[in-house]
């Protein structure tokens, strides 16, 4: 191997050849597509949004530098504060629902059966298509005033629900849709469940533990690192909820589903307050950073780590 860069060159290579055959060069060349993409599509837009967040850019006229005014105005904007409130509400309702559901299905699918892999693919399907506009439109029809859900409720003799006309009901179709896309969390849980050594379960059974005890004392603690991972991933993606609310409710009624990302879009693209929307995005980054940090800090107390334990 030609790892030793300054080593005397036995085969008489030119400096160019030495450069090309160098391990580091090879590494960087392989990483280059990602690095270039990351710079162009992530870092540059992020930095320009940081600049625009201190301007009154409106897409049409040249921007003026206005300092921190956008950030100060944010906290006087009742619509912004409301969007934080409803987004937190959405995150705290949808993430546990989704994870609990994913864990439940993953648990069911640990049973040895020939159909397991078939079912796994089947349950993964909503994750693949669930974020699409087409599915959101289907959802809108399902929960419409005279949609399938209400028709069935009426047939059962239950009073129908005005899903999108009521400020308290409107969030549920969106939360249910999120929970329905449990597939990817389920796969990760399933992989985690497989990793738990069977000897633990055998020992517990010999000691006379019942199913519930086994789940709480063995399965959950052993699975906790996987739960942490899923929790973080879902928290982040839930904060960015957009398509469902945009297509199904358009933020209504009366801003009950005016989630953070949707309000950013409304300000930035619809009202053309790009500067203000950029400021909002940076505050969102901050909020998500803080929440993720809190989860990590507290995880010491509930995540079981075999290396330490």
């Amino acid at each position: 191997m030609s790892k030793k860069i300054n080593a005397p060159d036995k085969s008489g290579r030119t400096p160019w050849n030495r450069f090309v055959y160098n391990t580091n060069t090879v590494g960087y060349v392989f990483a280059a597509p990602f690095i270039i993409g990351f710079l162009i599509f992530t870092i540059i837009p992020m930095l320009s949004s940081l600049y625009y967040s201190c301007t009154d850019y409106n897409l049409i006229e040249k921007e003026n530098w206005i300092g921190l005014s956008n950030y100060i105005y944010l906290f006087q904007d009742p619509r912004f504060l409301n969007s934080i409130k409803v987004t937190l509400q959405y995150v705290f309702l949808s993430v546990p629902t989704k994870l609990a559901f994913a864990l439940f299905i993953a648990f069911l699918l640990t049973r040895p059966s020939r159909l397991v892999s078939f079912y796994r693919s089947l349950y993964y399907l909503p994750s693949l298509i669930g974020g699409s506009v087409a599915v959101a439109l289907v959802w809108k029809e399902l929960f419409a005033r005279k949609g399938l859900i209400n028709t069935n409720l009426a047939a059962l003799g239950v009073s129908t629900i005005n899903w999108f006309g009521s400020m308290t009901a409107a969030k549920w179709p969106i939360i249910i849709m999120t929970a329905w896309q449990f597939g990817s969390s389920m796969l990760i849980f399933a992989a985690g469940l497989k990793e738990i050594p069977g000897s633990y379960y055998e020992a517990a059974k010999i000691d006379g533990a019942n199913g519930r005890k086994i789940f709480w004392k063995i399965t959950l603690p052993c699975l906790s690192p996987v739960i942490l991972f899923n929790l973080i991933m879902q928290l982040i993606s839930s904060f960015m909820v957009f398509t469902q609310a945009f297509v199904i409710t358009a933020g209504g009624p009366n801003d009950a589903t005016m989630y953070y990302a949707l309000y950013v879009y409304k300000q930035g693209i619809q009202s053309r307050n790009m500067g203000y929307a950029s400021a909002m995005s940076w505050v969102m980054l901050l909020i998500m950073g803080v929440i993720t940090a809190i989860v990590f800090k507290t995880s010491k107390h509930w995540v079981f780590n075999e290396a330490e334990g």
Binding site: Y21, V26, P33, I36
Partner: peptide, 18 residues
Amino acid sequence: RIKRFLAVLLALAMILAT
């Protein structure tokens, strides 16, 4: 050596393609 050269070549082709 040939393998690595090929790899570099392929990677370059990929960058150009993107």
